[in-house]
């Protein structure tokens, strides 16, 4: 767990993903998603993109262009856990910004979001914090998703607890909060 996160996805895995989707229109997005999923740190590294491009003959710049367009693609290594705060209007008016500020407990997190970033990964690669435009769970605002599980009507107390459990790898504790 240090700075060397050159998590290049095994080319055999990429080959397998490509062959499984070959010929399907729009395959590129699906293939890219699966390659990202196969990567240890859930991101598309440049070497994997290069390999993907050489095998599919899709220009590398186009793969990059697509990867930067959609919020689901990560160009940087992601943390082991994800904590996503909804900044949709309903959540926003019900205090999602405060929740984001509460995450200042994670060093560097508040600064990143204040400077306009929409994603932040802790240095130890334990947690990635993101915001999302809207979860479509507005009736439950404010909403937070932790490793894909939705938490509703989240309070400052709760989000701090959620964060702490993730930091301590105590995921099961979190389920009790949902």
């Amino acid at each position: 767990m240090n700075a060397t996160v050159e998590s290049r996805v095994d080319t055999a895995i990429i080959d397998e993903i490509i062959s499984r989707h070959k010929g399907k229109p729009g395959e590129l997005l699906t293939v890219m998603e699966e390659v990202q999923e196969a990567s240890e740190f859930k991101f598309l590294d440049d070497a994997s993109m290069e390999y993907l491009s050489s095998q599919t003959r899709v220009p590398l710049s186009r793969i990059y262009s697509v990867a930067t367009f959609y919020s689901f693609f990560n160009l940087k290594p992601q943390g082991k856990h994800s904590l996503i705060v909804c900044r949709g209007t309903a959540c926003h008016t019900k205090g999602s910004k405060i929740l984001l500020d509460d995450l200042a407990l994670l060093p560097g997190c508040k600064e990143a979001f204040d400077s306009g970033e929409t994603t932040f990964t802790s240095e130890d690669k334990q947690i990635t914090v993101k915001t999302v435009a809207c979860f479509g769970q507005c009736a439950l605002a404010p909403v937070v998703a932790v490793d894909g599980v939705i938490y509703s009507n989240v309070t400052s107390e709760q989000i701090k607890k959620l964060l702490q459990n993730l930091q301590e790898d105590n995921k099961d504790e979190n389920f009790r909060l949902s």
Partner: peptide
């Protein structure tokens, strides 16, 4: 499956996305 872009709700952007391009 969409990949997280609001604009893809616009029908022609949605087609582009389904064709594996930017929406």
């Amino acid at each position: 499956m969409g990949s997280g872009a609001y604009i893809c709700g616009e029908e022609t952007a949605l087609f582009e996305s389904m064709e594996g391009k930017r929406g």
